[in-house]
Amino acid sequence: MSSLEFNGNEIAPPPDGIQTAVRVRGVSKYFGKGEQRVAALQGVSWDVYVGQLTMIIGPSGCGKTTLLSVIAGILDADEGSVEIFGNDVTKMNDRTLTRFRAERIGFVFQQYNLLPALTSAENAAVPLVIAGWSKSRAIEKASHVLNSLGMGKKIKSMPNQLSGGQQQRVAIARALVHEPSLLVCDEPTAALDVESGRTVMNLMREAALRADRAVVVVTHDNRVFDFGDRITRMDDGHVAEVRDNVHAPAA
């Protein structure tokens, strides 16, 4: 791990020439009621930069998945605001937020969440189908993306015919197929062996990172920490540490 730039909740301005993709300000999230109320996030202020792979790390229950869910617009914050490329998702109504997610956000899940009845290409095509593309056009584009991820020979394979690493690559294809601005990944390597985990993270850097896109990865897999440009450590609902990773491979 390299030197850090830790400012707690004091937000440092982005380095010169780097834009902010996600701007989180004073976000709190509570679960439960009364005496059983638990604060999962406590006034978190944090930024994600465009063209970078940002990692969120920390012990179980520290709030990293909650923060990811809030910035992905699938969990409402109780307090504070979240801006994604200048759009305040906390002020959007359900309909607008759903459309925003469909157009601007890509998801990679720990358990892949591929539909078992669909082929790789059909699974990867789902976001386009949600966006209203015809089945044939969507599958054509998804096949192209799968091909670029080295899955060209598995286009017609069903999820149960693929290894964990291959399934995660299909999931990455699904996350990228509609060319989102923000890619959110929850423990993408947790269910993979070391080799597959590194392959997936390499793909994430190579295929996902672009000058107009940001990638946020929640992980506690220390084997892949080096792949992050910035590493945010969370603890007990707070951002405990934010640091640049000088060992990050070139994008």
Partner: peptide, 16 residues
């Protein structure tokens, strides 16, 4: 349910 959840996360509306 998880698949439906994933579809919702990816932008599928309740109506769909």
């Amino acid at each position: 349910l998880k698949q439906f959840g994933a579809l919702k996360a990816m932008g599928a509306t309740n109506l769909r």
